[in-house]
Design a protein around this nucleic acid. Structure first.
Lengths: 197, 197
DNA sequence: CCACTCAATTTAACACCGTTAACTAAGTTT
DNA sequence: AAACTTAGTTAACGGTGTTAAATTGAGTGG
């Protein structure tokens, strides 16, 4: 009886321990330093154990990427339930994305294959990423009810500005203070949202 | 007499052969597949020879990055000498950047540590990258003569939109046709330039 | 209590990686 | 001819992702 319960729980603990360790190493030493053996050492198992939970390093990274998009989705969902005004919604969603990239840069990196991280699973096949796309597109649509194609264009533009600024801010953070980049980001996203009217 | 001339020329040939091979492998198999041994095999030498030309894989990548920025600089310079109108200049510069990323994606990747490429030399310490920044800033200034801080803000915005769209277009190229992304890019850059007035 | 099974886990191995030290062979200088 | 320089190689170190085989250990039927 107990074993039936304890075994699966341990499995889940080990699994999340692997994910947690991978992210922790990436945060401290960068994704190029994340190795299966190092993860195994940290969770006090031998390397092959990791393969009992993830078929390869690639699917491990894919899981972290999906976690990231799911987290983003939840935050966007929260914003939408919090505000009624579509303009406010899109702006707040933009700010959430900035905050996410700021607080968990290593996850943001693996989501977009930045800074040496490489997850070979195509990002557009990720269900969790598509869910994020849908929720933002829906927000834009509730704002400007146009044809699907137009919405996709606007979404692509919004995504580009947001992602472009976040990426450059990360890349230049030692030259241009992050807070200064954030100020420009806020202004740009506000203007983008305003210009949608 | 001959040796004094032939030796340096051969040296230069080998050196550029290494660079060419690295880019070629990256283009065909991605940066994660670029290894010193594979490069050495291709140029028909043993691996340690590569270290006679580059202190490490990292400085090899740094050289390719610098080559990329120098190429971009030359193109920007050409545009500036070709057109007088600052508006036209900035727009054409934007198009050159798109074309560069389209034709040599593997170089664009190493310039920004995209898609698994990792050059640990900080990008903002690259002289060739700073030269590119200066020439674009100058173009914006000839357009809107404002304080240096304002110019840097505008440059950051221009760079973000351009780079963000290029990056996303590359990432989504199998879902959203590149030509379609290019259309949105042209429209966005045109609008950015127009809004500068 | 012994033998057996079965699952969990580890060890050992393979082929690769970046990098360096030691070595070889050829040519040049003295 | 002997010593030195140069170009290039082989071999090695410690690391990587990954897999097959060996090992451990606990529970079970005889």
């Amino acid at each position: 009886m107990e074993t039936i319960e304890r075994k699966p729980r341990n499995r889940e603990q080990i699994r999340s321990g692997i994910l947690k360790t991978a992210k922790s190493i990436a945060r401290q030493e960068g994704w190029q330093a994340v190795s299966i053996r190092k993860i195994a050492d940290a969770i006090e198992y031998s390397a092959p154990i990791v393969y009992e939970y993830f078929d390869s390093k690639d699917v491990l990274l894919d899981e972290i990427r999906s976690e990231g998009f799911r987290h983003l989705y939840q935050e966007y969902d929260r914003i939408i339930n919090l505000y009624r005004d579509p303009e406010k919604r899109l702006y707040e969603i933009s700010l959430v994305q900035w905050e996410f990239a700021r607080q968990q840069p290593e996850i943001y990196q693996v989501m977009y294959n930045l800074g040496g991280a490489l997850c070979t699973m195509p990002i557009y096949e990720s269900e969790s990423m598509q869910a994020v796309s849908r929720i933002v597109c829906k927000t834009i649509f509730s704002f400007i009810p146009k044809a699907e194609d137009s919405i996709k264009r606007l979404y692509f533009q919004w995504w580009s500005i947001s992602h472009g600024m976040i990426m450059l801010a990360m890349l230049l953070k030692d030259e241009q203070p992050f807070d200064q980049s954030e100020q420009i980001y806020r202004e740009s996203m506000r203007r983008f949202v305003r210009d949608l009217r």
